[in-house]
Simulated assay, not measured.
Amino acid sequence: METHTINFWKMPDADKRVYFFAFLAMMAFAGNSLLCRLALKHAVIDAANFTTIRIMSGALVLGLLVRLRGGVYGTAGSWWSALALFVYAAGFSFAYNHLPTALGALLLFGAVQATMLGYGLWHGERLSRKQTVAIICSFAGFVALLSPPFAAPPLPSALLMTAAGVAWGVYSLRGKQAGDPLLATAGNFLRASAFAAALSLVLWAGLLPDKMGVVYAIGSGVFASGLGYAIWYKALSGLPATHAATMQLSVPVFAAVGGVIFLGEAITLPFFLASTAILGGIAVMIFDKAQAP
């Protein structure tokens, strides 16, 4: 069996930079939840326009990065991947109309991991006894999260965020065969901009975003999405697969902390217990798979 252990302080400087970049990427991903919730709660902007500005600004910064690297913008990616990206971004934004930051991030993350694990099972991966118990615990935590006396969020919003997570899982799975990840992501963001613009036109209700709404959306697109993905892809080249997967467990935690600090959201004991069951079960799944002979 093969296992990976790390001692950060004994790493070469190059490896320390990899984990530092990964940490920045996780902060950026959590920042997407925080910026979206801030925009919809404390600024004047609707979910459709937030989605459009986020995707278009992300496309611009990714295009700039591609050009600076000497690549040709818009040649990679696909319309199907762009559609999955758009469904994720739109479902994410509309769900955050009524979900607190931490709960939204946890639902999103859980759905992403469930999609990718389900894909592996569909293609013949076997579960150990420990993994079976872990997935049952995660599912029980997910069900509890949606039920009284736990979070019991509005069901339409919870389903939207779950759909967003499934779409992101599909996008991630398709991205594994997409070649250069930066080129593919840039091309997909460019194509997804067309879907987002159409959504804004269809749902246009005469409401113009205010300055802070636009700032939050651009911040989400440029920093938390475009630069965040670019940093993450740079880190992935030097990370063991299990470390990359488990580091993503930190995203709902960072989002929860941000929600408490910037939005005054409370973390209740039932939410903590349910999220521990979900994230703990996923962690066991990842580690047990990594240690299989």
Rank of each mutant, 00 (worst) to 15 (best):
I6V: 15
I6A: 14
I6M: 14
F8E: 08
A14D: 13
D15E: 13
D15Y: 12
K16R: 13
R17A: 15
V18G: 02
Y19P: 05
A22N: 02
A28F: 00
A28W: 00
F29V: 00
G31F: 00
G31Y: 00
S33R: 01
S33K: 08
L34S: 02
L35W: 01
L35N: 03
C36F: 04
R37T: 08
R37L: 02
H42T: 15
H42Q: 14
I45T: 05
D46R: 12
D46Y: 12
N49M: 14
T52V: 15
I53A: 09
G58D: 00
V66T: 04
G70S: 08
Y73D: 13
A76I: 04
W80L: 15
W80A: 15
W80Y: 15
S81H: 08
L83D: 04
Y88D: 12
G91L: 08
N97F: 13
L99C: 11
F109A: 11
Q113H: 10
T115G: 06
G118F: 12
G124H: 03
G124W: 12
E125A: 15
L127V: 06
S128F: 08
R129E: 12
T132A: 14
T132R: 11
V133Q: 12
A134T: 05
A134H: 05
I136S: 09
C137E: 07
L145C: 11
A152P: 08
L155Y: 10
L155H: 11
A163P: 08
A163H: 09
A163C: 14
A164Q: 08
G165V: 09
V166H: 10
V170S: 02
Y171H: 12
Y171F: 15
R174S: 14
K176W: 07
Q177H: 15
A178R: 04
L182I: 12
N188V: 01
L190Y: 03
A196D: 05
L199N: 06
L199G: 02
S200F: 13
S200A: 05
G206Q: 05
L207V: 15
P209Q: 07
D210C: 02
G213I: 01
V215A: 15
A217W: 02
A217T: 02
G221E: 04
A224Q: 00
S225Y: 01
L227K: 00
L227I: 04
Y229F: 10
A230H: 01
A235N: 03
L239E: 03
L239C: 07
V253Q: 07
V257M: 07
V257E: 10
V257T: 05
V257K: 06
I261E: 01
G264C: 01
L269V: 14
F272D: 12
L273T: 08
S275V: 10
T276Q: 03
G280L: 08
V284W: 11
K289M: 04
A292L: 14
P293L: 10
